[in-house]
């Protein structure tokens, strides 16, 4: 049994894969609590896809793909923030426009390249087994920045998410905090690229946090439970990938989805069974 558990990680590239998966699992899940609570799921999805042109440009210039993704993500986050500021446009309208434009630009740029083969495929679908030591350092560094920011300003982010009106009255700058949250989200998505890829990073932002929402009644607890679900899904997904020989990113997301379904049915207060019982006794 012990051998079954340790065998996959005898090789160095698998150890790096484990480290990268855990970092991404925890990071996406923690910031995902704000994505779920502020109904920003569409934004996460848009950001993930809007990264495409940045990657394409980086590829054409021969620059680092993650760096290109990072620049694109931050630009889109700032753009969404500016367009929807002071309610000139509804936020989802602004997101929709930028999302479509960025995706089109990405496809256009990619179509100029004759053989973009494996590198771009990795960005789209992730390749946790191909994480280099340098990637791991970048991933870890960004994760530390994002998690530290959330921790230090937990009080302010909580207030601005729950009650932006009070945040405004107390001079806690909800606009600035919303902007900061967009940037943190962009950084997180870039971190998630390497392991689960663009297509599935949006799922990792939403599914563990939604699971935690069903199980907790305080924001800090929701973040902790979400992190555990995300980390456990990442590890379980890697085992599935090793023993069943399936794509790791997809396996991670499906494990998280299974956790969500269990919580949806069995959660003590908000679960299907608990609500059914409450209705019958009422």
């Amino acid at each position: 049994m012990t051998a079954w558990l340790t065998d996959p990680f005898a090789l160095e590239f698998m150890q790096r894969a484990l480290a990268a998966s855990l970092i991404v699992g925890v990071l996406c899940s923690v910031i995902g609590t704000f994505v779920v609570l502020r109904a920003m799921a569409f934004l996460g999805d848009a950001l993930a896809h809007a990264i495409l042109p940045g990657v394409a440009v980086a590829y054409l210039l021969g620059a680092d793909l993650l760096l290109g993704a990072l620049v694109a993500a931050v630009l889109v986050a700032v753009g969404v923030g500016l367009f929807s500021r002071r309610g000139a446009l509804k936020e989802d309208t602004a997101i929709g426009i930028l999302f479509a434009a960025a995706l089109a630009l990405g496809v256009l740029l990619m179509s100029t390249v004759r053989s973009y083969a494996s590198d771009l495929t990795h960005i789209l679908f992730g390749n946790v087994l191909g994480v280099s030591a340098g990637d791991l350092w970048l991933t870890g560094g960004l994760a530390v920045v994002v998690l530290t920011t959330l921790l230090l300003f937990f009080k302010e982010f909580q207030l601005a998410s729950f009650d932006p009106v009070l945040a405004h009255m107390l001079n806690k700058r909800p606009e600035l905090l919303r902007f900061a949250m967009l940037i943190l989200l962009a950084l997180t998505i870039v971190v998630g690229l390497q392991t689960v890829g663009v297509g599935l990073v949006a799922a990792m932002l939403v599914t563990p946090a939604a699971t935690a929402y069903l199980l907790t009644r305080r924001l800090a607890a929701m973040m902790a439970v979400s992190a555990v679900v995300g980390a456990a899904s990442s590890v379980a997904g890697l085992y599935a990938s090793y023993y069943l020989d399936v794509a790791s990113g997809a396996a991670v997301v499906l494990v998280a989805t299974a956790a969500f379904v269990l919580a949806y049915v069995f959660a003590p207060r908000r679960g299907l069974l608990a609500r059914g019982a409450a209705r019958r006794s009422a």
Binding site: L37, F162, Y213
Partner: peptide, 8 residues
């Protein structure tokens, strides 16, 4: 929103 009475 997941907040307790005390939090609010």
């Amino acid at each position: 929103f997941p907040v307790t009475v005390h939090d609010v």
